[in-house]
C-alpha cells in the first residue's frame, strides 16, 4: 500500500500511456486516434514532471530574487523543484499543439476526399 501511494504518479502515467496507445490502435474514428495521441503525449509529460518533483520543495522561482542587490544568501538546492524537466515539457506542450494542428489538418484532408472519418469506410473506398 505504501509503495502504491508513494509511486502513484508512475502508476497513473503507465495507465494513461496504455489508454493512449489503445485509442491510437483500436479506435475506428480518426479524431479519436488524434485524442489518443494527445493522451499519450501528456502521459510522457506526467512522467517527466514527476521526476522533477521534490518533497517539500517550492516552485522554481527564487523568492525576493528581483531588483538590484538581490539576496545573495546560499540557495538550498532541495528547496526548489528541478527546473530542467519543466523546461523540456513546457516546449513539448507547445510542440504538441503543432502536432495536433498537423494531425487534424490531415484528418480534414482525408474527410474532404473520402467524406468519412471512419477507418474501415476509408479503407473500403481505397480498395
Amino acid at each position: 500500500m505504501e509503495s502504491i501511494i508513494s509511486d502513484y504518479n508512475y502508476w497513473i502515467y503507465i495507465l494513461l500511456m496504455m489508454i493512449g496507445l489503445y485509442a491510437m490502435l483500436a479506435k475506428n474514428n480518426l479524431v479519436k486516434k488524434v485524442i489518443g495521441m494527445s493522451i499519450f503525449q501528456t502521459a510522457i509529460i506526467v512522467f517527466y514532471v514527476s521526476i522533477g518533483a521534490k518533497e517539500h520543495a517550492t516552485i522554481p522561482i527564487i523568492a525576493h530574487g528581483h531588483g538590484h542587490g538581490a539576496v545573495e544568501a546560499a540557495i538550498d538546492v532541495t528547496h526548489y523543484a528541478n527546473p530542467l524537466p519543466h523546461v523540456l515539457m513546457l516546449t513539448a506542450i507547445v510542440v504538441s499543439v503543432g502536432t495536433l494542428g498537423v494531425a487534424l489538418a490531415i484528418c480534414l484532408g482525408i474527410y474532404r476526399r473520402y467524406n468519412s472519418l471512419e477507418e474501415d469506410e476509408i479503407q473500403e473506398q481505397l480498395q
Binding site: V31, I35, S38, T42, I45, V49, S50, G52, A53, K54, A57, T58, I59, P60, I61, A81, P85, H86, V87, M89, L90, I93, V94, S96, V97, L100, G101, L104, C107, L108, Y111, L117
Partner: peptide, 29 residues
C-alpha cells in the same frame, strides 16, 4: 507538483487552443 510554468502553458495551450482546434475540426467534419 510545483511546475507553474508548465501549468501556465497547459492552461493556455492544452485547455485553450487545443480544445478550440478540436471543435473547429469537428465543425468542419
Amino acid at each position: 507538483m510545483g511546475a507553474v510554468d508548465v501549468a501556465f502553458t497547459e492552461a493556455s495551450v492544452g485547455a485553450g487552443v487545443s480544445t478550440v482546434l478540436f471543435i473547429a475540426a469537428v465543425h468542419q467534419t
